[in-house]
Design a binder for these strands. Structure first.
Lengths: 252, 252
DNA sequence: CGTTTTCTTGACAGGGATCAACACTAGTGG
DNA sequence: CCACTAGTGTTGATCCCTGTCAAGAAAACG
């Protein structure tokens, strides 16, 4: 829960009390091994959950076998909007790495939201951001070139991880193998491989042993047409111009 | 409002009273000429609105000038999730045809939701469906061929219009020019034109004078990998096998 | 009716898909 | 601790779907 609360700080000024309230809504912790399914398309979701550790991803498989990854679920992310449980899920969710997640009681969460306007605002903000990320992915897949798509994905993930303290702004984990990146970006694996090499050899990034290092954030963002405003971050985590001396460290 | 309520019936069993409550949340009516902007990216949304008549669309323009249409707003659609006003909009909205829309008071809407669990459920359902549509668009643009994308779009629009009584199941308006269809599907105008001709000449559809006729819904759905379940419709408006003798007419 | 959109067509180019090996890595079990 | 295997990454060759450019036809519209 810790990380959900941390993320929500970017959307509202939660009090200590608010965070405690949120923490109480947290239910059973579940561990899922890498590559295991968490929710199957069509299944009735019994509850929603927060990712505590590890990465998961939501995806759909078409009748012709093609797969599209809709979103990566990072630590602190909710599996569903906080206000409803869909009668059946219209996509599947699977663990990308080994994942630790906490089930959330919907009534408790709603009660928490009712009890504090800040919590309510924070949760709605989160929902808004999640929607914005989805829509940005439409743009990514619809109107960007291969390297732009990849660069954009890297920028986004890095920034989202930074929101929960899992990136210092330039270095973070990046566990998905190229097949998954391909299915997230609407590309073939082969082409992801080649485009990634391009990003590497132009000195913008390194990506080794599931670890991403961004060497020139400004250039990477510019070359992938990445405009961080859609993430609705109030603090300046994102600056188009990278500022190594900013004070985020303390705040995190 | 009429049409929003009608749509919501697919998500919850609203009473007459509920619909009246909803109707009271409706504010000023605004008319927007075709092609005019309604909301500009970055602008603070003062209120959200329902589309009463006509089509609008949400879009983003990249720095390189490319445009991606994120979604078409049809009569009965809300411009934003019902629970919050974003501090600033991360996309623009423009009128596709001449549009009549009604501003909605957020507090009134929230009050309505609080006053009736059915209204609340209905609004959350709507939010869920809107999200599902967005995600299905990711799939469309990411993993389908040109004709599949177009077919899918047509199926979706037709079905959504049917939910509000603006399609009999096979025939409906389809005002967007090919440029817009292209930007919605992540294709070039030229290719939309050619792929559309393909759909026409295979006898699946006609599209003339901004009016769409689907000649073989089953085949069109199958060939575009269209699975209507993501729209979360309880009634069988959608049947993969077309049934001209069903009883929807009365219910509408 | 002239003017602007929108639609069509043709020719051509290219980004990315596909197919097919091969190398590497990490985990598994003997 | 090594051999084995499955998963992942890399490359090369080839093809084709879709984009781009350009210009003419047809509608739509004031």
């Amino acid at each position: 829960m810790h990380l959900l609360a941390r993320k929500l700080r970017h959307g509202a000024n939660l009090t200590i009390k608010d965070e405690e309230t949120l923490a109480r809504a947290r239910g059973a912790v579940r561990r899922v091994p890498a590559r295991a399914d968490i929710v199957l398309e069509g299944a009735q979701a019994r509850s929603l959950f927060v990712v505590l550790e590890g990465w998961a991803y939501a995806y759909k498989v078409l009748e012709n076998g093609k797969r599209q990854i809709l979103s990566f679920l990072l630590p602190g992310d909710l599996s569903e909007p906080f206000g409803v449980l869909p009668e059946f899920s219209s996509h599947s969710i699977a663990a990308l790495t080994a994942v630790k997640l906490a089930e959330l009681s919907l009534p408790d969460l709603q009660a928490a939201a009712r009890s504090s306007p800040r919590i309510q605002r924070a949760l709605w903000w989160d929902l808004l951001v999640a929607g914005a990320i989805d829509r940005e992915r439409i743009v990514n897949v619809g109107r960007r070139s291969a390297t732009e798509r990849l660069g954009h994905l890297l920028c986004e993930v890095n920034l989202r991880l930074r929101m929960v303290g899992l990136s210092d702004g330039l270095v973070c984990d990046f566990p998905p193998p190229q097949v998954d990146v391909a299915d997230a970006c609407g590309l073939s694996t082969v082409h992801v491989n080649r485009s990634l090499q391009q990003l590497k050899s132009s000195g913008l990034i390194s990506l080794l042993h599931r670890r991403l290092t961004i060497h020139d954030l400004g250039k990477l963002q510019a070359s992938s047409l990445f405009d961080p405003t859609y993430l609705h971050i109030r603090d300046d985590l994102s600056g188009r111009a990278f500022d190594p001396g900013n004070s985020m460290q303390e705040r995190l």
